[in-house]
Design a protein around this nucleic acid. Structure first.
Length: 557
RNA sequence: GCCCCCGUAGCUCAGUGGAUAGAGCAAUGGAUUCCUAAUCCAUGUGCCGCAAGUUCGAUUCUUGCCGGGGGCACCA
């Protein structure tokens, strides 16, 4: 509908100019939007105000000239008005919305999909938690956001890869090995003090036990470093398996798991550093190798190789990101926790230095913290190592759908209160069920309609659909017509919560309709067929939106 | 001190230059012999943190200030 009006306006502009009514043939992009207030019409444009200066005319006069030159070939416009400081409002014939229903049915799962991203390769990297412990709730939010953003981009025609970067190298992994080793020794009677920097969780002890079962006490006779390495490898592998399975239970599946260790094994980190040296991007100071990130806007230079010869994580991160672009991705999205924001300038510097346009080709989504609550009071989230609520616990308690939906209910830059009690509630308070309930309700109505033999198939019937005249019915269609642009905005801004909000408002509109009007009526078969066609469309849009969020659409609840 | 995010109704938050700023929760009262009450309807609340600037027009963009959170290692 919006494009049709836009074309009408464009044509009117041309016609008016040719007729000499408008002096200038220059005009800004024509913006058409749905006003917030119903009395302002179905669609509105500010073009008259925006053009006032160029045309050297009063906005209201321009608006009138436009109205005089509009040709409504399809007869979709019921009336127009000039309002406020110069808005041009369009009121659409209610029946002009009806063909949109057909479009929704025809496109179905692809309704709202587009080709705007065609030919552009995106990589979305998210979660990427170190395999040193299980995922916690914060990772869950990052997973939901990253996964949904990737889904939405894919839906908009982008070629998208979902990737998890495994930090399976470096100091943290060694610390992990050491933690397990110490627990292992303790199991064999060699008590040692457990260092504060080691991982405290019980899962470390469990793995030490597994190693003891597997290796007996043989590790004690091995050289310390080798034994620690064995522990580290085993532990990291087990933890990673756990992470993978927790994510699978959460509905998140990656296209690729990328190992940091492999970057080292394949010499890519070394190669990157050599190239940087050659290009004079780095210098030595106090025994360490520094990358001149300040040349690219960072506030201080950063170490890539420490005095002891070890590379920093930054070094491998640079190699990793270069590798991403070498793999042919046009744009790279990293989903990070908000506490990593200080890392952005140096990463941007590295990307800029490697020849990419970091502002266009690199985007970081900083996801804010999750405040885990239980009945309004903070649920155990001690910062003490080893005490945290895991993603698995949350998913087991409230379910995957509720967790995913609620993680996507806020803008990712807004801190999120996640109340376990609310998430479990099967009431109005819980927006997940509110939306899913629409799907279940409609499924039930359709099933009943088929059972009673009121319809045999759901299909476009001109005379049936024409009976959809209630304001709530036209309102539902108008709302659904806005879904594609919601998806588009969601993709453009990388903001999944727009879908969430859309679904909630569509659900509200449907529930209200349902309570006011009956879909199935035995004595009005044609009206029943029309209404079934309408609600079936609603069901498709709900299912479509939920799938972008990674939430299921149940037939029964 | 520097950097990032936030500041909108009692609470939690939508609203990326438009008209009279919205929703949920909480509160009160109502609705179901009938397609799923996990639902709906009614009742009201605002110095959009403050102040300048840009603009025909600012909750939205810029700058400064105030308040809250987070980050500022040869840590990850």
């Amino acid at each position: 509908m919006k494009p049709k009006i836009r074309i009408c306006i464009a044509e009117a502009l041309n016609r008016a100019h040719e007729a000499g009514a408008l002096p200038s043939s220059e005009w800004p992009p024509i913006e058409v939007e749905a006003p917030k207030i119903e009395s302002h019409g179905d669609l509105s444009t500010n073009i008259a105000m925006v053009m006032a200066k160029i045309q050297k005319m009063a906005p209201k006069k321009i608006a009138q000239i436009l109205i005089d030159h509009i040709e409504d070939r399809e007869s979709i416009i019921a009336r127009t008005e000039i309002a406020g400081p110069g808005f041009l409002n369009f009121f659409i014939h209610p029946e002009a919305w009806l063909p949109r229903l057909n479009e929704i049915h025809e496109t179905g799962d692809r309704y709202g999909a587009s080709e705007v991203g065609k030919g552009v390769r995106y990589q979305v990297e998210y979660v990427s938690s170190n395999p040193t412990g299980p995922l916690h709730v914060g990772h869950g939010r990052g997973a939901a956001v990253g996964d949904s953003v990737a889904n939405i981009l894919r839906f908009c025609g982008y070629d998208v890869q979902k990737e998890y970067y495994i930090n399976d190298s470096g100091r943290q992994i060694r610390t992990l090995g050491l933690s397990v080793m110490i627990r292992y020794k303790a199991l064999l009677g060699q008590e040692e003090t457990f260092p504060a920097e080691c991982y405290q969780g019980d899962y470390i002890i469990d793995m030490a036990e597994e190693i003891r079962e597997k290796h007996g006490d043989s590790l004690l006779s091995e050289p310390e470093e080798e034994a620690v390495l064995t522990c580290a490898r085993y532990a990291a592998e087990q933890i990673l398996k756990g992470i993978e399975s927790d994510l699978a239970d959460f509905g998140v599946r990656f296209d690729r798991w990328f190992s940091e260790q492999r970057l080292y094994d394949e010499g890519k980190v070394e190669k990157t550093l050599a190239a940087m040296k050659e290009r004079g991007l780095v210098y030595e100071k106090e025994g360490a190798l520094w990358f001149k990130t300040t040349d690219y806007g960072d506030e201080k230079d950063r170490v890539v190789v420490r005095g002891n010869g070890q590379t920093t994580y930054f070094a491998s991160d640079i190699a990793y990101h270069i590798d991403k672009y070498e793999r042919g991705f046009d744009r790279v999205i990293d989903v990070w926790g908000a506490d990593h924001h200080g890392y952005i300038p140096r990463m941007r510097a590295a990307i800029e230095a490697s020849g990419q346009k970091s502002d266009e080709q690199f985007h970081v989504i900083l996801v804010q913290l999750v405040n885990l609550l239980r009945g309004g009071t903070p649920a155990a989230m001690s910062t003490r190592a080893g005490e945290f609520v895991t993603l698995k616990e949350v998913v087991d308690e409230v379910g995957r759908d509720a967790a995913r939906f609620l993680f996507l209910i806020r803008h990712y830059e807004s801190p999120l209160d996640f109340d376990l009690e609310v998430a479990k509630q099967q009431t109005n308070d819980n927006p997940v069920y509110y939306v899913q309930y629409v799907h279940a309700r409609i499924s039930s109505i359709i099933e009943k309609g088929l059972e009673r033999g009121l319809i045999s198939t759901i299909e476009w019937q001109e005379d049936a659909v024409r009976l959809l005249v209630e304001p709530e019915e036209i309102g539902l269609i108008k709302l659904m017509v806005r879904y594609p642009e919601t998806v588009e905005m969601s993709a453009k801004n990388l903001e999944p919560h727009r879908i969430t909000y859309f679904l909630m408002s569509l659900a509200t509109a449907f529930h209200a309709y349902y309570n006011k009007h009956r879909v199935l009526t035995d004595d009005a078969p044609l009206l029943t067929a029309g209404r079934l066609y309408l609600v079936a469309a609603v069901r498709k849009v709900i299912r479509n939106g939920l799938s972008l969020l990674g939430v299921s659409a149940p037939e029964k609840m």
